[in-house]
Each structure stands twice: as C-alpha cells, then as structure tokens.
Design a protein around this nucleic acid. Structure first.
Length: 199
DNA sequence: TGCCCGATTAACT
DNA sequence: GTTAATCGGGCAA
C-alpha cells in the first residue's frame, strides 16, 4: 500500500515540492493517476497569481500549505494547484498532467474521448476528467475527496521552461517524468536543464 | 463602468 | 502552422 502524503510534505520550498510530486499518485473521488507534469509558481515570480498581492481569487494561496487552489483559466477551464511553503508565502504547484490509472471509464465519459493520452494531459483536461471545479477551491489535500500518495521508488525527472506564460517564461520551473507519453507537451531536449536528483 | 488579456483547448488549414 | 471560444480579474478612468 503506498504511503499517503501528509501536510508537512507541502511545507517546503515550491521548488522542492514540485519535482518530488513527479511520480506521486493523485486521486480525486477515486479518479486520477500518476502525476507526470507540474509547474512551480513562487510569490516572487511575476507569472504567479500571488505576485501582486492577495485578492479574492488567490486568497487560498496566502493560506497554509496543503490546500487546493482552483481557478478558472481562459474563461472556460479549471486548473488545480497545491499550495506550498509556510503560510503566507503564497506559492503553489500547478498540476499539469496525469498518467490515468483509476476511473478511466468515468474520465473517458467526462472528457468525451477514448484515447488515454488525451484524458489528463493538460491542466484543464485533468480537471475536467476528475470533476474538479471552482467549489473545490480551498479544500485540504489530506482529506477526501483528495487522496495523494508518494511515489514508491526513484524516478527520472526532467526540468524545462513553463508553458503558456509571458512573464518570466525563461525560468525552468516545469518538471516532468522523463519519457512519459502523458505529458501535455514534450520537453524540448535543448531546453532541459539539470536539477537536484530525486531521492 | 469599460477594456484588455490570460498558468487552455480543440478545431481548423 | 493559426484561431475561435468565452469570462472573471485587475487596473485605468
């Protein structure tokens, strides 16, 4: 039985938590899979929602770590983040892609596609597949409907530039599982940068 | 109040 | 490769 991730896991730098999430299993109401792609957003980062201070939308980011920050993107999609670091630092990890392992039939129905590679490969897609919407903003990650399990063994993590942003776009704060077929986009070999190897 | 734009996706050519 | 869909946040006025 895999080990469930506790709140203290998120009480670290977002740049430590993000690569450590690669290979972990995310379930929401028993649906989900293995996390293969995330991005780190630090409050000193111009691309982070929290960069310009607390507002009604980003208030959860300014609370304690270990909670879900869910926001609407481009007026039509939902995106899921894990709040990290000590309370007030307003940093979070965006969950960008899963390798589906649980509840695939339900996720196929919700997404309207059969191809497993299109179920959870993208921040908006995985929220649609798992049924995550705005009302889940602020929920604790330690409690149902969330269940997050640490990876069992070492994995190969690659890092590169983030996707879909214009500010601080050069920062290599996107992390992925090397060679995964379930990434929202492949990592450009030329842009991959070294980082601390996972335990 | 009005305007611009975005941590996206899918359907095009 | 390009672009439409669609809407709340943030900021100027």
């Amino acid at each position: 039985m895999p080990k469930r991730i506790k709140r203290t896991f998120f009480s670290r730098s977002v740049h430590e938590v993000a690569p450590d999430l690669i290979g972990a299993t995310l379930l929401f109401a028993s649906l989900g899979g293995r996390i293969v792609e995330v991005e780190a957003y630090h409050h000193t980062d111009p691309a982070a929602h929290s960069f310009r201070g607390e507002t009604a939308r980003n208030a959860v980011m300014f609370g304690p770590p270990g909670y879900a920050y869910v926001y609407r993107s481009y007026g039509m999609h939902w995106c899921l983040n894990f709040v990290c670091e000590p309370k007030g630092s307003a940093s979070a990890v965006l969950i960008r892609a899963l390798e589906p392992t649980a509840g695939i039939a339900t996720m196929r129905r919700r997404r309207g596609v059969a191809d497993e590679r299109l179920l959870c490969s993208g921040p908006g897609r995985l929220c649609q597949a798992l049924g995550i919407i705005g009302k889940h903003n602020g929920l604790p990650l330690e409690e149902a409907p969330f269940a997050i399990f640490a990876r069992k063994g070492p994995v190969e993590v690659v890092a590169g530039p983030r996707i879909g942003i214009t500010k601080a776009a050069e920062k290599p704060w996107r992390y992925g599982l090397k060679g995964s077929r379930f990434l929202s986009k492949p990592f450009s070999p030329a842009a991959i940068v070294p980082h601390r190897p996972p335990r």
